[in-house]
Design a protein around this nucleic acid. Sequence first.
DNA 1: TTAATATTTAGATATTTGTCTAAATATATA
DNA 2: TATATATTTAGACAAATATCTAAATATTAA
Lengths: 84, 84
Amino acid sequence: MNDIFKALNDATRREILELLKSKDLAAGEIADHFNISKPSISHHLDILKRADLITFEKNGQFVIYSINTSVMEDVLQWILTFKK
Amino acid sequence: MNDIFKALNDATRREILELLKSKDLAAGEIADHFNISKPSISHHLDILKRADLITFEKNGQFVIYSINTSVMEDVLQWILTFKK
DNA sequence: TTAATATTTAGATATTTGTCTAAATATATA
DNA sequence: TATATATTTAGACAAATATCTAAATATTAA
């Protein structure tokens, strides 16, 4: 739970998830959406990976990232415990 | 959304919310549950307040804190946009 | 009014975090 | 093989964060 909330606690990372909601993207395509260096985006992707919020697959020289919505279920359940 | 995720990105603050789920508590009662100084807990309460995740009411020399679940609804809706 | 209790504010400090540039690695293509 | 493209790793640095102690503020009670 710690890793998930940590990953979600950054506007850039949340926006990456929004992008991947529409379709899978290569690391470079993701980076192109931001005014942030590629290494920084790579670091954000790493944090999202650790939280298992995204997965990736190597395709030639590209690395294609996909969202993993199953982890969102855990957050959902946690939130629901607060609904009265 | 930023303030909410920031507030939730800390185990102590999430535990404070768990405590308040059961019942309203004074600042000191909350602090008694942790091996952390009262000023630190006061700081955590401040962050939860800013995120509107808790409310408070002064009662004599005590300050009674309550959880505000309505904000959880916003997180819930955000999470749901990822459910396929 | 003085002392005790409850809480917050102020200021300091060590750790974590987000960002950068430069360099390394991996793959594709000429 | 040499060069170009895609991505990550390494290392540095400023800003944010969680914590502490000491002091300030507010309220109650003797």
